[in-house]
Design a protein around this nucleic acid. Structure first.
Lengths: 338, 338
DNA sequence: AAAAGTTACGAAACCGTTTTCGTGTTAATA
DNA sequence: TATTAACACGAAAACGGTTTCGTAACTTTT
């Protein structure tokens, strides 16, 4: 049990002042070679490391970035975190992860907690509940305090800050394009309610693509689920009542579930019915048949978000100027499409 | 842009001393009702929140706990984090997540960084590289400083600290039991090299179960992969040369891959060949057929680890006494077994 | 009316750094 | 030799809180 050594300890031991020690360890020109050598050697011997908290207090910079995500047990978000970590660590920053658990309350609490000096900036993705309530005052308060903020994926234009998203509409467009080009005509969409920003954009892209390819839009081919949970009965009735030859799903789970149903109805995949799912995660790769997917490039998104944030944190923010980076989705072709 | 208000600001504005403000906000008996009311009202009006960093410096307690995991894009670890978050948040702690990316170097760097005052204690799982090198000096240094530490899942007995693991051997035993009881005789094991603590324990459990059921151990039925990566060729030759009717895999991916191969060889699952995989993750649930799995109870593990850590952090550690919690695995029966 | 006890507050130390500014000593210049 | 400049270091303030202790002004006790 050897407790941490401080500047004061070194100063006392070497009979110099604290300031001298501090400067010597920073290799300041002010201090003589002899004294520096002595102090540096002593510090190394006792494995001196400055106390982060004290440094943070003094510099008003913590070198921590706060990340608020809706759910950590979710492949997409973890890839984003990986990207953030990667970039942030390389720049000497730590990542403080807080999970809102898709709830408004926890999002608020976590942000307030972190905003009181624990972090230099935020990277966040909105919880569904926050999106439903459409209440962003907690975020506004943070940005008003001058704390840099980058939102990713689930963003809102009610807040003025840097953002990084993928072009969800374009992703849906790519999927429909793929279907059309392989001769599909009755293209269904399984999505969530519109309050989820991404669900909305994807639905728009789907509709746009249909009109682009002169396929009449049939509202009955759009299945809207109230949440991200799989509601088996809704799927059942949908597939029993609708005649479709291609299905675009806004997430993997929906797609896997739908494929199972189709399989159970003795349809051949992809000949009789094709599938494409958003978010190219583990399930897509390992499904049977493997699922053609629209990749969200989470890791890239995380890196970009971290880049933007650290940029803002490290520059004396003269003018408030915000930008939105739009990443292009990619279609990963597998066995669920022709 | 309204910057944070400090005690000093309030004191100046209300023409009292800083100490009075501090005490008033803590509702100290020392301060008169009148003054407290005035100060509290003012503080609320200007939304005063104490600066975490300053409080941490003074109290030498950060209310942060550091979590070091090998990989964040991994279902098991994320469930553990969820458990940690859940418990820690309820106790008013934040979670600082750092990813070692299965590397020794990053593990050391991250720990040193966090150990300099950023956190009150560690929860960690060893990177594979650290386990291979068998070098735990960086961890020893941290515990020597009196920083509380809890290790989970991938632990080592070279370090004296609290631990929480699941009984991996018992998990393997359960799986073999299941196979035997459904009439299987030629039971294979697909695992990784022994340096991974969990792989070793699982292999032991497998062997123990075989002997318990009087099934001769055939080393040729054990396929050892050098890493967690799926090596397709190794799988191929194994299944071409060995006659098996049940396969236990140390992770989902191995199991899914093996099932595919069996499927490709026109074997019926589970009649001709059954499968069980460790780590009851998404893939197991959504595989086709769905995979019988040994649940690791990651969330529970996380909660328990957090509980142990916070217990240590919050008690004046009189005596050094460490304990290991062993969680019981559970067999989740699905369609890949009879 | 003097002694003792309360009440309500402020001064100051402290946590561990960083950084500005002042100063005693020595060396270079006039 | 007196003046100035360079050098090497220390004192002290600051970051934003918490907490101990001291004390002026009253109130109560004897």
């Amino acid at each position: 049990m050897k407790p941490k050594i401080t500047l004061k300890d070194i100063a006392r031991e070497l009979e110099v002042s604290i300031s001298t020690v501090s400067k010597a360890l920073k290799n300041s020109e002010e201090i003589s070679r002899d004294t520096k050598d002595k102090i540096q050697a002593f510090a190394k011997l006792y494995n001196y490391k400055p106390n982060n908290i004290a440094v943070s207090l003094k510099n008003r910079r913590t070198k921590n970035i706060g990340v608020i995500i809706p759910d950590i047990v979710h492949h997409f978000f973890t890839t984003v975190i990986r990207g953030i970590e990667k970039y942030a660590n390389a720049k000497g920053y730590n990542v403080l992860v807080c999970v809102s658990n898709e709830g408004y309350e926890r999002e608020v609490i976590n942000m307030e907690l972190l905003a009181n000096g624990s972090i230099d900036g935020f990277i966040m993705s909105l919880s569904t509940e926050t999106q439903q309530k459409n209440d962003y005052n907690h975020i506004k308060e943070v940005t008003d305090q001058g704390i840099p903020m980058v939102m990713f994926d689930r963003v809102t234009d009610r807040i003025n800050c840097d953002k990084v998203v993928i072009d969800d509409a374009q992703g849906a467009f790519l999927a429909v394009k793929k279907f059309v080009e392989s001769g599909k005509k009755k293209i269904a969409l399984i999505t969530t309610d519109d309050y989820l920003s991404v669900g909305k954009a994807r639905t728009e892209g789907y509709k746009k693509a249909l009109s682009h390819y002169n396929i009449p839009l049939e509202e009955s081919l759009i299945l809207k689920l109230p949440s991200m949970e799989v509601e088996a009965s809704a799927f059942d009735t949908f597939f029993k009542t609708q005649e479709v030859d291609a299905v675009l799903c806004v997430n993997e789970i929906f797609a896997i579930h739908a494929m199972r149903l189709a399989h159970g109805m003795n349809k051949r995949i992809p000949e009789d019915i094709s599938f494409i799912g958003f978010t190219d995660g583990l399930l897509s790769k390992f499904a049977m048949p493997s699922l053609t997917a629209i990749a969200q490039h989470g890791e890239l998104m995380g890196e970009e978000a971290a880049r933007m944030l650290i940029e803002k944190v490290e520059t004396e923010n003269e003018e408030e100027t915000f930008s939105t980076t739009v990443l292009e989705p990619t279609l990963i072709e597998r066995d669920s499409t022709l």
